[in-house]
């Protein structure tokens, strides 16, 4: 791999990233254990793993909600290891698992979008909701969910969870992010809504040619979406499939790979079983 990518093609680079949690009185937990990872620009990465394997911590350490105890993170040519969460938001767009975490319920849909439209810029004293913002919001939202453009002036809290996640997606990508982070952003939704949000995600990532990291618990999503699949286990990347292998990846194929990892002692019994149940 070395030498085949120029620096601009490397969008995200983690070097030996480590995050340790110490619950008071409890044992130390290496939630991210020396992860090194390079993601080229424009790659759509799907992340899977059992509960507690460290997926959210990995994404959080990139977003800046979790501090690294060791290692470094470079994003879009910047060493962001010591940047605060709000500073990293200049480069990173995020969608959370909980629709309530990504939108301000008491503000209208348009006001939420107005805040997103200033992501990474000075807010200043000009009007938040201009006529042109309204027109663009109507066309962008209506283009994904017909009818949503009529609800711009309603409090976003009055929208369904699925609609709120769609708006959050549009907000996260309103200004093109260098990296889009999605942490189980369909997990809180019913299957039909989850499907619509996934469709919208795939479409936005493709349309804007985004670099994205998406954590999912859905087999359909893990097999059908993305250019690369990462399996996180005990804070490490246990499996990394990309290129043609990822395109060919079937559920059976995944089960076979889980088996092989287990026999090589890179995956414990319980994890292999719960992974097979989750994804295969």
């Amino acid at each position: 791999m070395l030498g085949t990518h120029t620096p601009t093609q490397k969008m995200l680079e983690l070097h030996n990233a480590t995050v340790t949690f110490s619950a008071p009185g409890g044992p130390l937990v290496r939630a991210v254990d020396g992860v090194s990872l390079t993601i080229p620009s424009g790659q759509f990465v799907v992340v899977i793993g059992t509960n507690g394997s460290g997926k959210s911590t990995l994404l959080g350490s990139i977003a800046g909600t979790v501090r690294l105890d060791g290692g470094s993170i470079h994003l879009a040519g910047h060493d962001i290891t010591r940047w605060r969460e709000d500073q990293r938001a200049r480069l990173v767009g995020r969608v959370f698992q909980d629709p309530r975490a990504g939108t301000a319920a008491s503000l209208t849909v348009l006001e939420n979008i107005a805040v997103a439209a200033c992501r990474g810029r000075r807010a200043g004293l000009s009007w938040a909701t201009s006529r042109s913002l309204r027109a663009e919001a109507a066309s962008r939202l209506g283009g994904i969910v017909p009818g949503l453009e009529t609800r711009l002036d309603q409090p976003i809290g009055s929208l369904s969870g699925g609609q709120r996640q769609i708006v959050t997606l549009v907000m996260a990508t309103w200004r093109r992010p260098d990296l889009l982070l999605l942490d189980e952003h369909t997990a809180a939704l019913d299957p039909a809504a989850a499907d619509r949000v996934v469709q919208a995600t795939a479409r936005l990532v493709r349309e804007h040619n985004l670099t994205a990291l998406m954590v999912t618990h859905s087999l359909a999503q893990a097999a059908s979406l993305g250019d690369r699949l990462l399996l996180v286990h005990r804070g490490r990347i246990a499996l990394d499939v990309h290129g043609a292998a990822k395109r060919r990846l079937s559920p059976d194929d995944l089960a076979f790979r889980f088996d092989r990892l287990r026999s090589a002692d890179q995956l414990d019994e319980a994890a292999a079983r719960s992974l097979s149940e989750l994804y295969v």
Partner: peptide, 18 residues
């Protein structure tokens, strides 16, 4: 508006750079 958003949902405001 950013202030209102930050008061309402700090996670959202921080994720959007505030």
């Amino acid at each position: 508006t950013a202030m209102r958003a930050g008061g309402d949902t700090p996670t959202m405001a921080r994720a959007l750079g505030r």
